[in-house]
Design a protein around this nucleic acid. Structure first.
Lengths: 261, 261
DNA sequence: ATTCTCATTCCATATAATGGAACTCGATTT
DNA sequence: AAATCGAGTTCCATTATATGGAATGAGAAT
């Protein structure tokens, strides 16, 4: 739900971005007073920050005085997406995996306590594709998220998990650090993570971790399917292939890449 | 090519964002010294700004020490895109226009001297769709861009045009303010803008302006086609329909919306 | 080894962000 | 109509923060 602020703010910039983050993570439209209640800052200060963000095109005011993120971000994101080498490297592998399974394949990375989806390959494109790329989900109830966590050094994983704001999405959602940590052990041992309808009812997936050598980038890929059509056994049958695809992508990654966290 | 800096910087935030902008607008990968040569700031200062951007996940360092935009922007952009009411309102109209013409339909808005594409409807989706959304093009050689400029108050249009860095993409590209202004008059009179292979050889389009009542949002939509298959006459045949679609979208827009510029 | 270039860190100073209080504007109530 | 309330906006002395010149560190080229 909310963003995880791990370390100290990055001065003025950090505060500004955290305003964006609050708005991006909010499910309801936010007006100024809503922002003020979510961000611990004097109204005058907050107001100027918001004004600056608007001036820069990073934020917009809607007709009803609620805020939404500015379209200038689109240009930035388009560049980010197309230039991203991690995604470029993974792409052909994702396609191959989709050909094999016939089901939807996701690629995502861990960012704080969230998974951000970088790519998606699916057959019937009835739903608009781009609506998925860039979407984020909690790390503790998604295959990609748990896969990513499982390859972090244990202390780092614990640190991230401490910042999670658990929320029970379905009956099978893990809602505490202990059960999550226990499952990470399993994942580390087998190499596969599962989402057993933990995020959305009727949707499950099998995933495997992808990571740069120094673990500065961790994420994963998954094969997702509706449980009414694909059984848990069938999902299990793909586990090895998913692992193998992840391994192939890992092998293609340069020795060192990416940002620190 | 480069970004247009219209007014004074928005303090610290503005400087940070302009760093992002330089990187987003660069066609070659940029290392620190490249950045330093494009941005008029002491190296120490610039370095700290870059560090902050990296810490915030807005920037990444590649293996070769070049920078690219951070994946955190994806999440922001996904929200921006999906929440954007302008796009939501236009969407069904774009589909209808595509059904009618069978050709690619674009929706874009003016941002400074650039057009940012918000949506695209096309039949054969061989090329990945999302690779288009968020892409930007110069305003002076695209149908959507010229359509948008044509509905700005003349003084504002002149202001923007003054910031254009003209570049000759093809033989028919307009490369000076005078011819562009003259064409804007024509567009204002007829209600249709054309890109006569001015950006990419072999590609032309017919467009019409879309705008909020107070002109705080200006943009347009276009039907684009390869000239070998669709003649200028056929393009002309769609002009009225394109105008009508734009009119319908304008009618659907709320009375007041969006950011100032 | 030595000399480059490029990247990074440091710290006194100046500048820009801060935040409390006052003000405006609309809507709602008396 | 007048008064009250809530939300949003502006102001300005104070303080904290960004600044940038200079020194250091890390690689590559000679």
């Amino acid at each position: 739900m909310a963003s995880a602020k791990l370390s100290s703010d990055t001065g003025t910039l950090g505060k500004a971005i955290s305003v964006l983050d609050v708005i991006a993570s909010a499910q309801e439209p936010m007006r100024f007073k809503d922002l003020a209640s979510h961000i611990d800052q004097p109204r005058g200060t907050l107001h100027r920050q918001v004004s600056n963000l608007i001036e820069e095109g990073l934020l917009q005011v809607n007709a009803d005085q609620s805020y939404s993120l500015g379209l200038r971000l689109l240009k930035f994101a388009a560049q980010s997406w197309s230039q991203n080498s991690f995604r470029q490297i993974a792409e052909p592998h994702l396609r191959a995996l989709h050909e094999l399974t016939g089901e939807t394949v996701h690629l995502g990375i861990l960012q704080g306590t969230e998974v951000i989806y970088l790519d998606k390959v699916e057959s019937r494109q009835a739903v608009r594709m781009h609506s998925q790329v860039g979407n984020s989900s909690p790390c503790y109830c998604t295959g990609v998220g748990k896969a990513g966590l499982s390859v972090l050094p244990r202390d780092q994983a614990i640190l991230r998990i401490a910042n999670i704001n658990f929320q029970q999405f379905t009956g099978s959602t893990l809602t505490n650090s202990e059960s999550l940590l226990a499952e990470l052990d399993e994942i580390a041992a087998t190499g596969n993570a599962y989402d057993r309808e933990e995020h959305e009812p009727g949707i499950h997936c099998v995933a495997a971790p992808i990571y740069s050598a120094d673990r500065s980038i961790v994420g994963g890929l998954s094969v997702t399917a509706p449980s009414y059509r694909i059984s848990m056994d069938q999902l299990n049958g793909w586990a090895a292939t998913v692992r193998e695809t992840a391994r192939a992508i890992n092998a293609d990654l340069p020795i060192k890449m990416g940002p620190r966290a």
